[in-house]
Nucleic acid binder design. Structure first.
Length: 277
DNA sequence: CAAGACTCCTGACGGC
DNA sequence: TGCCGTCAGGAGTCTT
């Protein structure tokens, strides 16, 4: 499932492919992908528009257009982007024909993804927390933010309005790296622990971006069609039943906030006021 | 404010 | 072999 590193990789590769290209036609095979607009509205808004900039915010990709409007997209579980001479790719939901004869294709097996046109960015992006790889995110901020809430770490870190871009994989990896239990309550962290968590989040994400993200199923591939490589460095995600790479203890899997959660119970000690372990 | 339930979707997978 | 129930999961919405 694409998170910050995967979307960042896609955006970086997409940028040189489509910046400067003009949309000459659109085809929509699943209207709900448009996020509420009709096919006619979508077509009228896009045909003739030129892509001026491609960037990322949280797990969203954004295409700025030459009339000041935007395409805001989200890959959710199974979305993929292609730049292809072929408009009809498997599970294609929306395709934009470009002026160089190629097509920007949004494909999405599970149809959870979005590829929407919006007049203003605020119409497409919800309230989002700071970007963990930017300066607005640091240990001091994180510590204050954690202490101002009273939530278990895992659901808090998954909350995009708290921190932008983390998903199930990188939260599990970051918590393990910082030796913090997913159910640990945010306001109980000592400053040193917040520091470790901030460092872990940055290090994990930066390393994953450097390796073009994680591919452990058939879903995520780069624009060039290649898998990422960070899955080879997973410490806990998907490793339940296998030995901890730090201490050898068996990696456990539990349910936290309705999400499969992987951890080492020896490295990540349960909080004293535990619910279920 | 926090947290759980529910919804959207389909392919993969386990059980029989 | 084949059918069927279950699961996975990001994020919005609704309820407790």
């Amino acid at each position: 499932m694409p998170e910050l590193p995967e979307v960042e990789t896609i955006v970086r590769q997409l940028r040189p492919q489509i910046v400067g290209r003009r949309v000459v036609a659109v085809s929509v095979h699943w209207e709900r992908t448009l996020g509420g607009a009709s096919v006619d509205q979508f077509e009228n808004a896009l045909v003739g528009r030129c892509v001026e900039r491609v960037w990322r915010r949280a797990k969203y990709f954004v295409l700025d257009l030459d009339d000041g409007t935007h395409i805001v997209g989200h890959l959710r579980m199974s979305g993929r982007l292609y730049v292809s001479p072929d408009a009809d790719l498997p599970y294609a939901r929306v395709s934009l024909a470009l002026d160089d004869g190629r097509h920007l294709v949004f494909s999405d097996v599970r149809k959870f993804g979005r590829f929407a046109h919006v007049a203003r960015l605020d119409d497409g992006l919800p309230a989002l927390g700071p970007e963990p790889l930017e300066d607005s995110f640091d240990a001091a901020w994180l510590h204050g933010a954690l202490r101002s809430r009273k939530r278990a770490l895992k659901p808090l870190l998954l909350d995009q309005s708290f921190i932008a871009g983390l998903g199930n994989i990188y939260v599990d990896e970051s918590l393990f790296t910082a030796r913090l239990h997913p159910l640990r309550l945010s306001h109980t962290l000592k400053r040193a622990q917040s520091d470790e968590l901030a460092t872990a989040i940055r290090d994990v994400l930066a390393r994953a971006v450097a390796l073009d993200g994680s591919s452990f199923d058939t879903f995520y591939r780069t624009i060039e069609g290649q898998p990422g490589a960070y899955q080879d460095e997973f410490l806990v995600y998907g490793r339940d039943g296998k030995p901890c790479r730090r201490c050898g203890h068996v990696i456990a899997k539990m349910l936290v906030a309705q999400r499969g959660t992987h951890l080492c119970r020896r490295c990540q000690r349960a909080p004293r006021t535990r619910r279920r372990t």
